[in-house]
Lab assay of single mutants.
Amino acid sequence: QLRFETNGEEQAKKVLEEAKKHNLEAHVTIENGKWVVHVK
């Protein structure tokens, strides 16, 4: 499982879109005010 700390909602959405293009499972959590994308 990969973990990407992003700078906010915009970047998190871009990472999610990329993951979906590659048929990867991804979800976002907010940790300590940071948007974190988890990709399987």
Rank of each mutant, 00 (worst) to 15 (best):
E18R: 10
H27V: 13
T6L: 14
K21E: 07
A19H: 03
F4A: 03
K21H: 09
A26P: 02
V39M: 06
L2P: 02
E25H: 11
L16G: 01
H38R: 04
K13Y: 14
K34R: 10
H22R: 09
H27L: 08
K21D: 05
N23D: 07
H22M: 12
N32K: 06
I30N: 08
A26D: 00
E25P: 07
V15C: 06
Q1I: 15
L24N: 03
V36T: 04
F4P: 02
E25I: 14
E9F: 13
V28D: 01
V36F: 05
H38A: 04
E31I: 07
T29W: 06
R3V: 11
H22Q: 12
K13S: 10
A19P: 00
I30Y: 14
H22I: 05
R3Y: 07
A26L: 03
V37W: 00
H38W: 15
H38Q: 05
N7E: 14
V15M: 14
R3K: 09
E31D: 07
H22P: 00
E10D: 11
E31Q: 06
A12P: 00
A19R: 01
L16Y: 10
V37S: 02
F4Y: 13
K21W: 07
K34S: 06
Q1D: 14
T6V: 15
E17Y: 09
A26E: 01
H38D: 05
Q1C: 14
L24I: 07
E10P: 04
H27I: 12
V37P: 01
W35Q: 01
K40M: 15
V37N: 01
L16Q: 06
V28E: 01
E18H: 14
E10F: 07
H38C: 07
N7G: 11
L16R: 02
H27F: 15
K21I: 07
T6S: 06
A19Y: 10
V39L: 10
L24M: 12
K20N: 09
F4K: 02
H22G: 05
L24Y: 10
A12Q: 01
F4H: 04
T6W: 04
H27M: 10
K13E: 09
V36P: 01
T29G: 03
K14W: 14
I30S: 05
K14E: 11
V28N: 00
G8M: 11
G33M: 02
V39F: 09
